[in-house]
C-alpha cells in the first residue's frame, strides 16, 4: 500500500508542502528535501498552484505603495549633504 509513498515527490504530504514552501523558495532545504519538494510539485497540481500563488503574492507585495520622507525632509537632507560634503569652492 505504500508504493506511492516511495515514489519521488510522494514521501512528503501536501499538508507538509505548504509549511515547507518558504524554506523551499529561500533555498535553505537540504538537497534531498528540495528535490523531493520539486518532484512533488511536478506531480501535484494543487501544490503547484499553491506555490505559484505564494510567488504571485510576493510579486504583488512588491507593488504595494510605500511611504517615505516628505519632500521637504529629503530636500533638507540634500542641503545638509551639500553643506557637509559639497565640493569646496568654485
Amino acid at each position: 500500500m505504500n508504493e506511492e509513498r516511495r515514489t519521488p515527490g510522494m514521501t512528503v504530504h501536501c499538508q507538509e508542502i505548504v509549511e515547507l514552501v518558504t524554506d523551499y523558495l529561500e533555498g535553505v532545504l537540504d538537497a534531498n528535501m528540495a528535490a523531493e519538494v520539486a518532484a512533488h510539485l511536478e506531480l501535484c497540481d494543487g501544490c503547484d498552484i499553491y506555490v505559484e500563488q505564494i510567488r504571485a503574492t510576493i510579486r504583488a507585495l512588491g507593488k504595494v505603495p510605500v511611504s517615505t520622507l516628505s519632500e521637504a525632509a529629503q530636500a533638507e537632507l540634500t542641503r545638509a549633504f551639500r553643506d557637509l560634503r559639497g565640493p569646496a569652492g568654485p
Partner: peptide, 16 residues
C-alpha cells in the same frame, strides 16, 4: 493530501 474541494484552484488572473 488536498481534498478535492480543498485543493487550491488557479486565480482568475495573476494578482500583480
Amino acid at each position: 493530501n488536498w481534498t478535492p474541494l480543498g485543493k487550491p484552484r488557479p486565480w482568475p488572473r495573476p494578482p500583480e
